[in-house]
Design a protein around this nucleic acid. Structure first.
Length: 565
RNA sequence: GCGCUCAUAGCUCAGCUGGAUAGAGCAUCGGUUUGCGGUACCGAAGGUCUUAGGUUCGAAUCCUAAUGGGCGUACCA
């Protein structure tokens, strides 16, 4: 249900009938209950262009307003606000329709867009650390969301599997001559040892550098070792994805190395277009007004990440035919993407109408506001963080003795992982974010647990009721009215979150649904004695639609619900 | 230095394309219970929306400047 579009259309029709040849501003949710459900503020803006008093304009509009089905009442207030009340009968029937629909009334897009979502992108030389968390879950949510809305989503995991560090790792792998599955078990440790050798042993260092060249020139022995290394490292990532319920698979991997063969042609194309300039021995592109050039080839002939990103952009826009490309990457790379996007368009690697968006996110901080690190300043392994959340989540379970060990573990996983993901997805992605595990595992406030609890409580009502839901919604008070309006706004929220690439708009909405449901439920008993059947049914339908909306919304955020916790 | 970005209640955050008296949660204080899951709900208190100008009928929101923080700043990614 595109609720706002319906109302905007009614306003638009009133404009037509009133003979006002201007595009109306869009309606907004009313700021207060006494101002109705929606408000139209456009009369004031028109007053100057039409040379009329805004209240007069508002009156004309109301005279031409269609009151047939959706709008029940319209009032002029203040300088010329038009407050709109929606028809409760219409709200009720639309909510019933949503409750019967598996998609809750959310339509698929008429014209799907082909969207590439680039996210996660771990470095194969190391284990995933907390820095990869935000990209992985924000990206996954956006991919889920766009897919749900009917876009054609192509997930791309641009893993770091190329570069000088791999020469070092392979050299060390060969030198230690251990069974790789054992020696790579702790990648972090392996990397540290290799790095230590690299730093002190010149012979080892030169061998490492030699191996880089060998890999890049296709030496079979080195490539085999390299491939083995990548496979194992990727396996570690997949363990984390599995734990996080992030939907990235092998086939989504387009590693840095994938673009290796395209790099020289990128540079060649830039050169052919006269965009290239040599500076201090490096091949550079100087864009207008940019002091810093984009270096596409180092003075030693090597390529850089800008080159790879250009190749990836070209691949995504041409081979994959994407019309929208999202890069879910740390905000600190804003400058890089701004340059690379501009160049990709200028050089024609990506056509003008393709939308290139850097979906930037802030840094994860600890409670003291410092970048998130271990006590000794090291990076925190993502898997350790997740395990800690799951362990702590067990404490939240009410009646532990009624679960088997396996059930308790499964429950703790849903709660713990949900808490970590929700905490991240519920704040504005661009701001830095304070990681506080106690807070995210609380039942109070805007947390996943509050939402999961609200959901479980509703399921408990249905267990107790244990019957068939029929009948109709009868809106009996302002809370029920408000709940219906809110529930019908689900699709609007999803669309806006998709357009702006902001998952937090979904969580804000879900929190509103959960809190409003709790208030409704507190005030309007469902199964208590004395509630007549008609009212009982009406409230059961509302409870069901609320629960389904929470479940669907959380599912888009990659978070599960349970019937009891 | 230059560039980007942020600044809203004690703390953590909402605030949609400019709209009416700026909203939540936590913490603090008070209330609701023979209980449909109280891990809930209701209420109180808490604000010069960093500052100063400007645009506008109207600014937390747009523009300019200042102050303070974060980040980036050519051959790592």
């Amino acid at each position: 249900m595109k609720l706002k579009s319906h109302i905007n259309q009614i306003i638009q029709d009133a404009f037509m009938k009133a003979g006002i040849a201007h595009e109306p501003t869009r309606v907004t949710e009313s700021s207060k209950a006494e101002f109705g459900d929606f408000q139209f503020n456009g009369a004031m803006a028109l007053s100057k262009v039409l040379g009329k008093n805004p209240r007069e304009i508002a009156e004309t509009l109301i005279k031409n307003l269609n009151f047939d089905t959706i709008i029940a009442k319209a009032e002029i207030a203040g300088p010329g606000f038009i407050n709109l009340w929606l028809n409760p009968l219409w709200l009720a029937s639309e909510c019933e329709a949503a409750q019967h629909d598996v998609r809750l009334g959310v339509e698929k897009r008429m014209i799907p867009t082909k969207v590439v979502v680039d996210y996660s992108g771990p470095n194969m030389a190391k284990q995933m650390h907390v820095g990869h968390l935000r990209s992985s879950i924000i990206g996954d949510t956006l991919a889920n969301l766009l897919d749900y809305l009917g876009d054609e989503v192509i997930r791309q995991n641009h893993i770091g599997d190329w570069g000088t560090q791999f020469g070092m790792l392979i050299a060390y792998l060969e030198e230690t001559d251990k069974d790789s599955s054992v020696s790579l078990k702790d990648l972090e440790q392996f990397y540290k040892e290799a790095k230590a050798r690299f730093d002190v042993d010149e012979a080892f260092a030169s061998k490492a550098r030699e191996y880089v060249v060998k890999i890049q020139s296709g030496d079979a022995h080195c490539l085999a070792l390299w491939q083995q290394f990548i496979t194992i490292s990727l396996g570690h990532c997949e363990e984390v994805y599995d734990k996080l319920s992030v939907n990235l698979r092998r086939e989504d991997v387009r590693a840095e190395s994938f673009y290796n063969d395209a790099l020289s042609s990128v540079v060649h194309d830039l050169d052919a277009q006269g965009l290239l300039q040599e500076s201090d021995g490096a091949q550079c592109v100087f864009l207008d007004n940019d002091e810093i050039p984009i270096i596409v080839q180092k003075s030693d002939g090597g390529y850089l990440y800008a080159t790879t990103d250009l190749a990836a952009l070209r691949y995504r826009a041409t081979a994959l035919e994407a019309k929208r490309i999202l890069y879910v990457v740390d905000a600190r790379q804003a400058g890089h993407f701004k340059q690379v996007f501009a160049l990709a368009k200028k050089a024609g690697f990506v056509s003008k109408e393709v939308s290139l968006e850097h979906v930037a996110f802030g840094t994860m901080m600890d409670k003291g506001g410092k970048p998130f690190k271990t006590r000794d300043g090291g990076t925190i392994k993502l898997i350790d963080l997740l395990d800690e959340a799951v362990t702590k989540a067990q404490d939240a379970v009410k009646d532990k003795s009624s679960y088997s060990k396996e059930e308790l573990e499964a429950l703790a996983k849903i709660i713990g992982i949900g808490a970590v993901k929700y905490a991240d997805l519920s704040i504005n992605r661009e701001s830095d974010y304070v990681f506080n595990m106690d807070k995210m595992l609380s039942f109070e406030g805007n947390t996943s647990l509050y939402m999961q609890y609200a959901y479980a409580r509703i399921q408990s009502i249905f267990r107790k009721y244990d019957g068939v839901i029929g009948g109709h919604i009868i809106i009996g008070d302002s809370l029920e009215h408000k709940l219906c309006v809110l529930l019908l706004g689900f699709e609007d929220v999803l669309n806006r979150a998709a357009d702006d690439a902001t998952p937090s708009q979904i969580s804000t909405y879900l929190y509103d649904v959960a809190t409003l449901f709790m208030r409704f439920y507190e005030q309007n008993p469902i199964l208590k004695e004395g509630v007549v059947d008609e009212i009982k049914m009406s409230r059961l339908i509302l409870a069901d639609l609320s629960a389904k909306t929470i479940k669907q919304g959380l599912s888009l955020l990659g978070i599960d619900v349970v019937d009891a916790l």
